[in-house]
Design a protein around this nucleic acid. Structure first.
Lengths: 339, 339
DNA sequence: TTGTAGGCGTTATCAG
DNA sequence: CTGATAACGCCTACAA
């Protein structure tokens, strides 16, 4: 491979001059510049970023570890991170943990070894030593989507409680009184926050408490399916189900269809996370949409802030609002129940 | 930051010994090993991968540039690449070009500067100098999903022509004779190959040619929408539409629904690329499913092969078969048309 | 306006 | 069984 020294030799200059013309970091005469650039072309020189990184101790690269690349919610977030990174002159590399702590740890380790300048992490779940270690090492880290208790790093999150509160209120306003909720994996912060908003809405509406109405779907399609069946088996039957994320929404819908029931005529369904194709297929699901692009871009901006100044004051958590997208899947409640 | 020398000093050994215990690369006494490992713990030493890469000239990392991270087809592929990478001890970093050549070039340049050991590229489209340069530099590169004419690198692709041929035959077998196709962006290899399979099926069935039946949807939702409308406006009207990818399928379905038409009663629709949720929503689309996981894993395996031995004989193109998934969206043809 | 030289943290070669 | 030492390719004082 060809190095700056080769270029320098061919151009008849020193390697520091080559470096300076390549980086525009000090004045060089037009003649020398031309010769250097010519030699670069001639030899097909390609700068060695790893040598550079070793020297300057920065890579102009940030990382993003998402927890499920198959989930459109996360891939939508990537867009926001990408644009913010590009706007700041950084390149973004992406990894996928698959909701698996060992993969998460592996990727975190690999990225830190590569001396990325910072990392956005959509954590798989709980606190672990590798997370503690990275904040202890003052490695710039921001959490995305889920917070992890006990790890002191800024987090950019949906205001899950408010979003779930409003979603549940929507169902209540349509006349539903018996509303089941499918919750996510127990250890995720999102799950408890959404459940809290749901519970608060029922409480404030004076609906009698029934803890059987909150069943965990484990954040997966299959769990959502099972949870919907369990809810449906309750007495008295719920007239509406609020699913805690997109996967479980799909699972619930599948279970409902398989039973030959119709949404919303036989059972109302309110999903979490909006679908790109929600208007095209039937039933047209109402959902609480997350501001995915903004989640991505603001987490990147928080990261850049703490990278620029590690002592900068950033909020421990920044919450972004959800938005209720009303389509056709919740409407039957008022028609079928006494006011 | 703490280095091997710090560890060495604390452990009372030389830095080369530290390196050797860390890498298991030569025998060291239990006593020394313990002291080194203790010092590592004590100081919180974290190996500097970039220094290592500079020295050994390998990063144990491969890259994958996909052209649309919002497209589930590509994210499904990632899974296959990931697993193959992990199985070979490599870490995978992912970038997204957004079907944009300047982003593709940017990422390619950045990844090569980082001295990745190899790259899988789902190209945005045509040949460009940055592609020519990287194969000229003997940088291990394999194309995924689309081939790019004029660039001599192995490609792992769907057997698009056969898949489209069989898909069209399926429509023919249901009695459809007037079948429109929505093609992808003209410069993509996938588009022409799928169109060729479609055309061949019609020809072999003795269906009179009508080039108005093939309209480009540009591989995007909006284009699919417009194309479906254009096809619908033809005289005589097509009874079936074959859409060339998932985005255009959605667009076509949206257009059809917006017109108040029903699938398949008023118009049959056969999609390309299967949906994870295709069974749950209505209409239940029939599609030609791509072996996404295998596309990913075999492209990784081809890459590893040429990384291990640059002179290895690998096929210029390896084609994987598609699979027709029959649901409910094509059935009306035989009922509405004369045999 | 340009060159010299040292070092970033690691591994590998050689010597002991 | 372990230690010196040079080198990977680049950047950046400092010197000229």
């Amino acid at each position: 491979l060809v190095t700056t020294r080769d270029v320098a030799r061919l151009a008849g200059v020193s390697s520091s001059t080559v470096s300076h013309v390549l980086n525009g970091t000090r004045f060089v005469s037009d003649d020398v510049r031309r010769r250097v650039l010519g030699a670069v072309q001639n030899l097909g020189y390609e700068p060695n970023g790893v040598a550079r990184s070793l020297k300057v101790n920065r890579s102009m690269t940030i990382g993003l570890i998402i927890s499920d690349i198959g989930n459109p919610f996360f891939t939508a977030i990537v867009r926001g991170v990408e644009d913010a990174a590009q706007a700041n002159g950084y390149v973004l590399v992406l990894c996928n943990s698959n909701e698996d702590h060992v993969r998460e740890a592996m990727h975190l380790r690999a990225l830190r070894a590569k001396r990325l300048d910072g990392l956005i992490l959509a954590p798989a779940g709980e606190a672990h030593d590798y997370l503690r270690d990275t904040v202890r090492a003052h490695f710039p880290l921001v959490f995305l989507n889920r917070d992890v208790a006990g790890i002191d790093a800024p987090a950019v999150l949906l205001d899950n409680e408010t979003a779930a509160f409003e979603a549940t209120n929507h169902l209540l306003s349509l006349g539903h009184r018996r509303i089941g909720m499918i919750g996510g994996r127990p250890l995720a912060s999102t799950s408890s926050e959404r459940a809290r908003g749901y519970g608060r809405a029922l409480r404030e509406a004076g609906v009698p408490a029934d803890e059987r109405l909150l069943v965990s779907g484990g954040s997966e399609v299959e769990g959502g399916c099972a949870a919907a069946l369990a809810l449906r088996a309750l007495e008295p039957r719920p007239t509406a189900i609020f699913a805690g994320n997109n996967q479980m929404t799909i699972g619930a819908l599948g279970a409902i269809q398989a039973r030959g029931l119709r949404v919303p005529e036989d059972l109302a369904l309110l999903g979490f996370d909006d679908f790109a194709w929600a208007d095209v297929f039937r039933p047209r699901l109402s959902t609480v949409a997350q501001p995915t692009y903004e989640l991505g871009s603001t987490s990147a901006n928080v990261l850049f802030k703490i990278m620029a100044d590690p002592t900068a004051e950033v909020p421990r958590r920044t919450l972004l609002p959800g938005r209720l997208v009303i389509r056709d899947s919740c409407g039957a409640g008022s028609r079928r129940l006494p006011a």
